[in-house]
Design a protein around this nucleic acid. Structure first.
Length: 669
DNA sequence: GTTCCGTTTTTTTTT
DNA sequence: AAAACGGAAC
């Protein structure tokens, strides 16, 4: 095995893979075989007798975690069920799940996403009469997050939120729920206050690998450092040029902190790019060179120069999308590529719409990752809320969602009454319902009591049903949906549009189907209500259709594309205001550097061929605006690009046919 | 007290 | 275009 390794890897890679007895810092430029090194390193450790359960590999996105897991399995040919490859947040959940009682949480907590957090914030504000008008709840939540993670301290400007903050936190606790920050902060708290837990965790995870280290936040680093300090065997891999999550607290200063914390470390630099042609690499270097705050690197490639980057200026986003679809169809046949060899990258999720429509019209199979996901649709959130409330009766945000959905005749006044009881008794709404429904309590009339009891009975019955079901949650959920007659509810909500009603119902069916696939999967060793809820709260992403090579075009945001590569990459919407994004610049002009890194990441996803499109006009919030090409385009050395001549404009009657075709397809989904 | 209907607002990136 | 909100109708 060692000889094979030596011939397959360059000297730096080899050193990184085979050094497994001390801290390691791998500075890995784009396309330098970073993922390969990590996966080979895990395989190497296994071959040297390290037990899989002692290895912990952390990544940033679920996509990256899945990819890494798959690749390690492919290299070793083993199932590796004890190996932990996970995102930071999922790993945090794993720790919390074992020890949450020590922090005063009851058996199974709910995980609140942004939507839940916003409604909780609004609810809290209402209770303490904090005037939320004119304020953006998300900004306030961002502030709370900054305060908790130490990125900001209480001062004169923020003091007025103090009460709101305290109440928000205590509500969350009362509801036996945690938010995303908690998934990192609470484990730290556990480690700080419970030596036995820290010891147990250190005993289990003795070899630690962290991918995309430049994107870790200060607290995430602290989290992992607690564990790593047990055995001082940690390997981090990062590239400051690819730090694109600072808006979420990523701190690439962690790299220098790491050097201080582990002075005995070995630093390995991977600077040979194996991914892209010289043209693409030169273009990327030309761009990133304009950033001031970076470690200088000497990325090089032995590859040939490849073909020029093509830049095309369509008139609007429809033309852009049609162009991309056409080029993919054409290139696939001409260059014998597969659909999955194409990546279409966009700055914002909103940009996907026109492109999706064009793919549907052209009958091209595609897969979209990220974005307002399936799991954010109202009907799906409702289903999830039923399940969450069954799992955790104290989850008030879920209860509020479904208490009167479908309509049960429980309205504002009843709810106000319940809220008052809950507040005065310091209990959840579910417990408040039990209190007011006692025969001796006369605060509610009998009809209301009957409706409320009907609701709690339903939830309690299905809790039993869900917990008892062995690999058949799907059937239980189907029953639940039927029992509450969600179908009738949808129909009555959409009396004017039967198609929408059908489509929503279909979504529920798809949701149940994905649940069934998940629990029937033989590789899934531990299916159950809580596991399912964990899973979907941490990755409201596309349901796991045959992951990597499913023969589909990959459409995604640049953020989601990090760590991936494609033979041919289309970069759409390369316009000023989109990349760099207007809001990012408005927020702080210094953000231009992060936007540039984002552009750099996008460029370096391409292996052989890169196409850039920049629309002349675009509909932005139902207005047509004139767009200018992104200033970043100027930073690519001109000799690497050729302008693509626009094809003949689409004839009017042709365009009409095209629209009706698209419409028909969308409706049939 | 609950439901319906018209008006307003929304779009940066992810766990 | 769709969801979220707030006021009027039932």
């Amino acid at each position: 095995m060692i000889t094979t390794l030596k011939s397959e890897l360059n000297p730096q890679q080899y050193e990184a893979v085979t050094t497994i007895d001390r801290p390691l810092l791998i500075i890995a430029g784009a396309g330098s075989g970073k993922t390969r090194v990590i996966t080979q390193r895990i395989a190497y450790m296994l071959s040297r007798g390290v037990h899989q359960q002692h290895i912990l590999a952390l990544t940033f996105t679920n996509k990256a975690a899945r990819e890494m897991q798959d690749r390690v399995k492919a290299i070793t040919g083993k199932r590796l069920t004890q190996l932990t490859v996970s995102t930071f947040h999922a790993f945090g959940v794993q720790i919390l799940r074992s020890y949450s009682q020590r922090l005063g949480y009851r058996d199974h907590f709910s995980i609140y996403d942004t939507v839940d957090q916003v409604s909780l914030l609004k609810e809290t504000a209402r209770e303490i009469s904090f005037r939320l008008e004119e304020e953006d709840p998300k900004t306030i939540l961002g502030l709370f997050s900054d305060l908790r993670t130490g990125r900001r301290v209480w001062d004169a400007d923020t003091e007025r939120y103090h009460h709101l903050f305290t109440d928000y936190r205590s509500h969350l606790k009362l509801y036996n729920s945690v938010d995303f920050d908690d998934l990192i902060l609470l484990p730290i708290e556990l480690f700080e206050n419970h030596a036995d837990i820290l010891e147990a965790v250190r005993g289990r995870y003795r070899y630690i690998l962290v991918d995309e280290f430049q994107d870790t936040s200060t607290k995430q680093y602290m989290f992992i450092k607690y564990i790593a300090d047990g055995n001082r065997n940690i390997c981090v891999v990062g590239d400051d040029d690819q730090s694109i999550y600072s808006w979420r607290g990523a701190n690439f200063g962690n790299i220098s902190q790491y050097e201080k914390d582990y002075p005995e470390l070995l630093e390995v630099r991977l600077e040979q790019n194996y991914r892209s042609t010289t043209t693409i690499l030169e273009a990327a270097n030309g761009v990133i060179r304009n950033n001031t705050n970076r470690k200088d690197k000497h990325l090089w490639t032995g590859d040939d120069s490849g073909t020029a980057i093509e830049v095309y200026y369509p008139n609007d986003e429809r033309e852009e999308a049609a162009f991309i679809a056409e080029r993919i169809a054409e290139t696939r046949l001409k260059d014998h590529l597969k659909y999955e060899d194409f990546g279409v990258l966009i700055r914002t999720n909103a940009l996907s719409r026109a492109i999706e429509e064009a793919f549907l019209a052209a009958n091209l199979p595609y897969r979209i990752t990220g974005g307002t996901s399936f799991f954010d649709r109202k009907e799906i959130r409702d289903c999830i809320s039923y399940m969450r409330l069954a799992a955790n009766h104290d989850d008030d945000m879920s209860l509020l969602r479904i208490l009167n959905t479908p309509r049960r005749g429980i309205g504002r006044k009843t709810l106000e009454g319940l809220t008052d009881v809950a507040r005065s008794r310091n209990c959840s709404l579910f417990s408040a319902i039990h209190l007011v429904c006692r025969p001796e309590d006369s605060s509610m009339n009998d009809r209301v009591k009957r409706d409320l009891t009907g609701f709690t009975d339903l939830i309690e019955r299905y809790r039993e049903r869900f917990l008892k079901s062995k690999r058949d949650l799907a059937a239980a959920l189907t029953e639940l949906v039927a029992e509450v007659d969600y179908w009738a509810y949808i129909v009555s909500e959409h009396q004017t549009n039967e198609k929408i009603a059908k489509w929503k119902y279909r979504n529920i069916e798809l949701f149940i189907e994905s649940l069934r696939n998940w629990e029937r999967d033989p590789d899934n060793l531990d299916p159950g209500l809580f596991q399912w809820l964990n899973r979907i709260s941490l990755q409201g992403r596309d349901d796991n259709q045959n992951e990597t090579d499913s023969g589909q075009i990959n459409l995604m945001t640049i953020h989601a594309a990090k760590g991936l590569e494609h033979e041919m990459v289309f970069l759409a919407g390369v316009e000023d205001g989109i990349i760099p994004h207007r809001r990012a610049i408005e927020e702080d002009p210094a953000n231009i550097e992060e936007e540039r890194r984002l552009f750099y990441v996008a460029l370096t996803r391409a292996k052989r061929k890169l196409m850039i499109t920049s629309c002349r006009t675009r509909s932005v919030m139902r207005e047509i605006s004139t767009m200018e090409p992104s200033p970043f385009l100027q930073e690519i050395p001109a000799h690497l690009m050729t302008a693509h001549e626009p094809s003949a404009p689409i004839q009017t009657n042709e365009a009409v046919d095209y629209f009706s075709l698209v419409r028909a397809r969308l409706n049939n989904r």
